[in-house]
Each structure stands twice: as C-alpha cells, then as structure tokens.
Lab assay of single mutants.
Amino acid sequence: VTLFVALYDYEARTEDDLSAHKGEKFQILNSSEGDWWEARSLTTGETGYIPSNYVAPV
C-alpha cells in the first residue's frame, strides 16, 4: 500500500477530482497518469484524482 499525506488543501474542480484537506492520508491507486494521481481517501473512502504535487509520502 502506497500512502501519501496532503500537504495543502485542494478543492475538487471536476467530478473526477477528489478534494483533500491538509494532513489527510491517501492510498495511491494509480500514479501513471502524470501530474494527477488516482487516490482513495483513508478518511472518507472516496476515490478520485488529486494533484501529485499536493501530497508527499508518509
């Protein structure tokens, strides 16, 4: 399991995006899409895309 933590708040801009709150942890499901990674929030269980530069490894 690849875990990352949000460094900043991010507000989803499309229905495919996933909002993130600073300190929230995510499981990365797919990081092969360049700057946008598919992730699952460990807080809400929701999945979507987050900007890779907004997260760091735990």
Rank of each mutant, 00 (worst) to 15 (best):
K22Y: 06
S52K: 14
H21Q: 12
Y8H: 08
L7F: 02
V58C: 10
T14M: 10
S41A: 05
K25W: 14
Y54P: 00
Q27F: 14
L29A: 05
L18P: 01
L42Y: 06
V5Y: 12
S19R: 07
S41F: 03
D17T: 14
R40E: 07
E15G: 13
A12M: 04
G34I: 10
E24A: 00
A6D: 00
R13N: 08
G48L: 04
S32L: 12
Q27R: 06
F4Y: 15
K22L: 06
L18F: 04
G23N: 04
N53P: 05
S41M: 02
R40K: 13
E38H: 13
Y8M: 11
T44M: 01
A39P: 00
A56S: 09
R13I: 10
E11V: 14
N53Q: 11
Y49Q: 07
S32Q: 12
T44R: 03
G23C: 08
S19K: 07
P51D: 05
G23V: 02
E46L: 14
W36A: 06
A6Y: 01
E11G: 05
N53K: 14
T43C: 12
L18W: 02
W36H: 08
W36I: 10
Y54R: 07
S52F: 08
A20H: 04
Y54M: 15
G34E: 12
G23M: 01
S32N: 11
F26K: 01
R40C: 10
Y8P: 00
V58Y: 12
L18Y: 03
T47D: 03
N30H: 07
D16F: 15
I50P: 02
K22P: 05
V1G: 13
S19I: 04
F26G: 00
L42M: 13
D9Y: 05
A12N: 04
S32I: 11
G45R: 01
S19A: 07
S31I: 12
S41R: 09
Q27H: 11
T43W: 13
A12G: 11
E11I: 13
D35M: 10
S41T: 01
A12H: 04
Y8T: 06
K25Q: 12
T43D: 12
V55T: 03
E46C: 14
L29C: 09
E24M: 03
E11H: 12
L3H: 09
P51G: 04
P57A: 10
N30R: 06
V1I: 13
Y49R: 14
F4H: 06
T2Y: 11
G34K: 13
N30L: 07
S32F: 09
K22N: 04
E24V: 01
V58N: 04
V55C: 06
V5T: 04
G48D: 01
L29W: 06
K25T: 12
N53D: 10
D17A: 14
Y54C: 13
E33I: 12
Q27N: 06
Y54N: 08
L18M: 11
G34S: 13
K25I: 15
V58T: 07
E15C: 13
T47Q: 09
K25L: 15
H21K: 15
L29H: 03
P51N: 10
S31P: 10
S31A: 13
D9G: 04
D17G: 15
V55P: 01
R13S: 11
V58I: 13
Y49H: 07
L3T: 10
T43P: 01
F26D: 01
T2M: 13
T47F: 06
D35Y: 13
P57T: 05
S32Y: 09
F26S: 00
N53C: 15
E15W: 08
S32E: 11
A12Y: 02
W36L: 11
E11Y: 09
T2P: 12
Y8C: 14
F26A: 00
H21G: 05
G48R: 00
A56I: 12
G34W: 09
S32R: 10
L42E: 10
E15S: 13
T2I: 14
N30S: 11
R13T: 11
D9R: 03
V55W: 03
V5E: 09
L29K: 05
S52W: 11
G34Y: 10
T2V: 13
A39N: 01
D9M: 05
V58R: 00
A39H: 02
I50E: 01
P57V: 08
E15K: 13
G23Y: 05
T43I: 10
P51C: 11
E46A: 13
S32M: 13
H21F: 15
R13V: 12
Q27G: 02
T44N: 05
I50M: 04
T14W: 12
T47P: 00
T14P: 02
A6R: 00
F4Q: 01
E11P: 06
F4G: 04
K22W: 05
S52E: 03
A20E: 02
E46M: 14
G48P: 00
D9H: 06
V5P: 00
Y54L: 15
D35S: 08
W37M: 06
E24S: 02
E11F: 11
T47K: 09
W36F: 13
L42P: 03
D16I: 13
H21C: 12
S31E: 10
P51Q: 06
G23H: 03
K22E: 07
A12W: 04
E24H: 03
T47E: 08
D35R: 06
T14H: 14
F26H: 00
K25C: 12
R40M: 14
E33H: 14
E33V: 11
S32D: 10
I50K: 02
T43M: 11
L3M: 10
D35T: 09
F4L: 06
A20T: 15
D16K: 15
A56K: 09
I50F: 03
L42G: 03
T14G: 15
Y8G: 05
K25F: 15
Q27C: 13
G48H: 02
V1K: 11
L3W: 10
A39D: 03
Y8D: 07
T47V: 14
E33D: 15
T2D: 11
T47H: 07
G48T: 04
E38F: 15
L3V: 14
V5S: 02
Y10L: 07
S19M: 06
D17V: 12
H21P: 02
T44C: 04
L18S: 01
G48Q: 00
Y10S: 01
L18D: 00
T2C: 15
D16L: 14
L29V: 06
D17P: 00
N30C: 12
V5H: 04
F4M: 08
D35V: 08
L18G: 01
D17R: 13
L29F: 08
G23I: 01
E38N: 06
D9C: 08
V1M: 13
S32G: 11
A6M: 09
R40V: 13
N30W: 07
T2N: 12
N53S: 14
E38A: 06
K22Q: 09
E46V: 10
E33K: 14
L18I: 13
I50G: 01
R13D: 06
A39C: 09
L42C: 15
V55G: 02
S31T: 13
D17S: 13
W37A: 03
D35P: 09
G48W: 04
S32T: 12
T44S: 09
D17K: 14
G34C: 11
S41K: 08
D16M: 14
Q27S: 07
G23W: 05
I50R: 00
E11T: 12
E46D: 09
E15Q: 12
F26N: 00
A56P: 02
F26L: 09
Y10W: 15
E38D: 04
T2A: 10
G45K: 03
Q27A: 10
A56V: 13
I28H: 00
K22H: 05
W36R: 15
T44H: 02
A56F: 09
T43N: 08
T14E: 08
V5K: 02
E46R: 14
E38W: 15
I50Q: 01
A39K: 00
D9T: 06
A39M: 14
T44A: 02
R13A: 12
G45D: 05
E38G: 02
L29P: 03
N53E: 10
P51A: 05
P51E: 03
A56H: 08
E15I: 10
L3N: 04
S31F: 15
Y8K: 08
Y54E: 02
G23Q: 02
G48M: 03
I50T: 02
T47N: 04
E38K: 10
D9F: 05
K25M: 15
P57H: 06
D17I: 08
